[in-house]
């Protein structure tokens, strides 16, 4: 595939043309979202707004319509990400450092659980929550979300702990530090970028999840933006597509920002730190 050969140049041109066509296809459904959000008389067609306006955004950005749901989204995402990260670090450390008979079955179990369809679990989870009175409880939903992302988080975190050289901890061991203390003062600071990746990963997933809060949370005061957008769609969708698109964009921005941070982070810890600092 060298550039100098004529066939290589032809291949490159063909590739570029096909790639651009695919890019256009993938962008097409998103064009409506952006155009409609600035159009006060938006329909389902992607059309340029006569006079671009921010009215859709100002009409949607009210406490009841979006602030409360977005705050709930934040509580659910940050809460479940925090619980997941702490519990995953606690589990990953002994799994990575101490060889016991228990490790292998536990890791296999964790890996197995990452493949289970969470959607299929929502019916039994709902009946369980009814029985223990956790339906419509934010805390219950947060804990379920944390548990459902825990398997993949343990898996990711263990890989990050594996990457921290044990020789650094041995010095702490020599000085008589307990394993929990070593974890806190040596391992955790060294794997901060990895922890950020896991936190953001869980946060993005919880923020974007629709089905879990849709089933578990019933009152509008508790529902996150994903569910309130759907309700809005059902009630006003046919008349207010512009507002629906504006709300969708506002709700998507945090996830897009976090994704940019995390994808820069793949380049290395320093890249992630740089992205966080802005």
């Amino acid at each position: 595939m060298s550039l100098s050969s004529p066939s290589g140049r032809g291949l490159r041109l063909t590739s570029n043309v096909v790639l651009l066509l695919i890019a256009l296809t993938f962008i097409a459904p998103l064009v409506w979202l952006v155009l409609a959000s600035f159009n006060s008389r938006a329909s389902l067609s992607a059309e340029l707004p006569g006079t671009p306006t921010l009215r859709n955004f100002t009409e949607v950005l009210t406490p009841a319509l979006s602030f409360v749901p977005l705050w709930n989204s934040f509580l659910i995402s940050a809460g479940s990400a925090l619980i997941t990260v702490v519990v995953a670090i606690l589990a990953a450390y002994p799994l990575s450092r101490f060889k016991t008979r228990f490790n292998k079955p536990f890791l296999y179990g964790v890996l197995f659980a990452t493949g289970l369809p969470i959607t299929a679990m929502m019916v039994p989870v709902y009946s369980l929550f009814v029985r223990v009175g956790l339906v419509d409880s934010l805390l219950g939903t947060i804990f379920f979300m944390a548990a459902s992302s825990l398997p993949i988080a343990i898996w990711m975190t263990k890989n990050f702990v594996d990457g921290v050289p044990a020789s650094l901890e041995e010095a702490a061991w020599m000085d008589g530090a307990s394993s929990m203390r070593t974890l806190r003062s040596v391992v955790v600071p060294l794997m901060r970028p990895g922890i950020a990746v896991v936190f953001i990963y869980v946060f993005i997933h919880s923020w974007g999840n629709f089905f879990i809060p849709f089933v578990l949370l019933l009152s509008p005061a508790n529902q996150p933006a994903a569910v309130s957008i759907y309700t809005f769609f059902g009630e006003n969708g046919a008349i207010a597509y512009g507002q629906l698109a504006a709300y969708s964009l506002v709700y998507s921005i945090p996830v897009l920002v976090l994704y940019v941070i995390i994808s820069r982070g793949v380049g290395g810890p320093s890249a992630l730190a740089g992205a966080v600092k802005g």
């Binding site: 974007g208 994903a226 759907y230 629906l244 969708s248």
Partner: peptide
């Protein structure tokens, strides 16, 4: 990367 409900609306 978009939240699933948003891409569902777009689709």
């Amino acid at each position: 990367v978009l939240p699933e409900i948003v891409s569902a609306f777009a689709a």
